[in-house]
Design a protein around this nucleic acid. Structure first.
Lengths: 352, 352
DNA sequence: AAAAAATTGGGTAACGTTACCCATCACCTC
DNA sequence: GAGGTGATGGGTAACGTTACCCAATTTTTT
């Protein structure tokens, strides 16, 4: 390693010398601790400003606090996560905390594990874990060490908080909407489970199960058709391919996520079929692009910013010492657009 | 703060005791340092595995290394950044480094500053800064302290490496394409500058300048029309609004980024105009969604994954000691889709 | 066989911060 | 005025790791 002329960082000792006080005094000022006179506070603050001092995070970490919140996202490509992150940042920035993000890699449990370890190694004060796919036990193990909020799972745990969208309601809205339009052969694209055993708490599992339940309740059990791929564009594309070759062909596809719905749209068009003339398509998340006139994808809206904000608040509370577990559920709404219509409807051209 | 029963972490001392060696020996094994026999290595590794030891990052940070690379992204909503991050992760993960991301907040220099400080405070070993808008001096100041790679700016600096797309070529491709189709009234949506003074190194500035130059070279200087908003959906929407009320109305809009193009598409449709019948629209970045049949946006492809990978490699080299500065430029290609056509073309319905 | 060199392992002092304690001083109260 | 109380400031020992040394041993060279 070459000698880098990085001038030594300004430390608390430099500030103390410059202000003619002890390092303890400076530390107290920094933390708003008890036992600091107003005069002292001003004097120290002046020295801090003058030297441009910034606390050294690693040193703080060794004493226990890092003022950092770790966020685990499956992948940043999903725009819904941007809403969550914005909400979180809003909530925590005033309290001097900083969010750092790590990609957990979608549906690979090993990658997820590495990502979670990476945050633990970096001594974050709290973790927001979005849509984890690992077993519940692993979440509880983490929660024993670090304040944890899980977003997008329907677990009930005494050790961590859950922020979630009521996926049952959301899936019901979509299926009811399609049935009301007259569809009977409604197919579903979900995410393949990667962890062994049943994972009834995962949001895609709930969306899929609700789809099946609704179909059955409406006497359409025979028309249940599920493609288990993933909540990505590729997954939606592959899933739709798989569904379109079925005979009889479905007249509607409910993709468990907008990203997958986008992929499904591509596959439908590639097959020479029109939307919604031949096939209706619906998604979930109400990503901004669904509103585009060209896309006009029917979707389910869940307030991501609000969920992120709530997650931030709960995390700060946990860091401050709350031990009881909280569960916060958002009720979603359906946003019907032009990608869904009654089967057999003449296709309205997307351009007027 | 409540007492959390977090069991004390396994430390290097625990490993040393368990393996009956010194902490120094363990440290050497961890770092693959010189002076370790094969027998020692095996014995220590066994103890590490047995105890599930993981190095404490903060403690390492105090000694100089964190094995962490900080990534500054304007905002995770832009899917192009996902490609970059994937490429970076690919490249660095084998070397034991971990990437952490922080949002730098788009075009607000103050937020950008806070984000960059946050990474410095956390002692990252290197920084990949994507599309910074701050003055060059600030980048150089950072580069003096930390190995730095800047992605998406055309600076020439001796202190940091640059990875960039040849935006001049990209913008030329788009304007030439539109002119070849027969367009004359071609408008452009760019990003408003937030830092004072000229910033000729910023990619949006180059795209805009190239647009102007090309128009002038083709004798279309009178038809130059620029809306300066931002590279976001809102920005594209507002920009298109502004451009559409001009008289005569442009027949083509070149948005400096796909995100903005999406917003422009929405505005065009809302105005009751068709694409490409009334107006052609082109973007930049070739985000995956541009390929959607419903969208079919003409765009400029730059290999984001490759850029991210290169940035990672350059960063590792810098961390290893390289002092000379490198500049890596990717040549983009045009991907013509159905959102652009000759003016007056009868609109091809998006569904066949 | 002596000298030199290379290999291997360990001891120790930092790195920058804060929790915990103690010392001092001013001001009360009895 | 003796003793108590609160407010204020400082001393010091960690936190877990590694860079820099030195000591002991083995191997190579002369």
């Amino acid at each position: 390693m070459v000698t880098r002329d990085r001038q030594r960082r300004v430390t608390i000792t430099d500030v103390a010398e410059h202000a003619q006080v002890s390092t303890t005094a400076v530390s107290k000022v920094l933390r708003n601790a008890y036992g600091v006179s107003e005069a002292m506070r001003i004097k120290v603050q002046a020295a801090i400003d003058e030297l441009g001092y910034r606390p050294h995070n690693a040193a703080r970490a060794m004493r226990g606090r890092t003022f950092t919140i770790g966020v685990l996202l499956p992948h940043i490509r999903n725009p819904f996560f941007a809403d969550i992150l914005d909400g979180l940042t809003d909530e925590i920035s005033a309290s001097g905390y900083q969010a750092i993000m790590v990609q957990s890699g979608g549906h690979d449990p090993a990658a997820e594990r590495r990502a979670s370890d990476a945050l633990v190694d970096r001594q974050v004060d709290g973790v927001l874990w979005v849509a984890p796919v690992c077993p519940r036990g692993q979440l509880e193990k983490l929660a024993r060490d670090i304040p944890l909020v899980v977003l997008g799972r329907h677990d009930r745990s005494a050790l961590y908080d859950c922020v979630l969208d009521d996926d049952e309601v959301g899936a019901e809205l979509v299926v009811e909407h399609l049935i009301a339009l007259g569809h009977r052969r409604i197919a579903h694209i979900t995410q393949k489970d990667t962890v062994g055993g049943r994972a009834t708490a995962l949001l895609h599992t709930i969306r899929a199960a609700t789809y099946e339940r609704m179909m059955t309740e409406h006497g359409l059990a025979d028309h249940i058709a599920i493609a288990a791929t993933s909540y990505t564009e590729e997954g939606g594309y592959d899933g739709a391919h798989e569904l379109l070759v079925r005979d009889p062909r479905p007249t509607a596809i409910f993709a468990g996520a907008d990203q997958a719905a986008f992929g499904a749209l591509a596959a439908v068009h590639e097959a020479g079929l029109s939307v919604p003339g031949d096939i209706s398509v619906a998604g979930y998340d109400n990503a901004r692009l669904t509103g585009l006139a060209h896309v006009a994808l029917t979707s389910v809206d869940q307030d991501g910013a609000m969920m992120g904000q709530t997650a931030g608040r709960l995390l700060l509370e946990r860091i401050a010492g709350r031990a009881s577990a909280v569960r916060f559920s958002v009720t979603p709404t359906l946003v019907a657009r032009r990608s869904t219509a009654s089967p057999g409807t003449v296709d309205r051209a997307t351009s007027t």
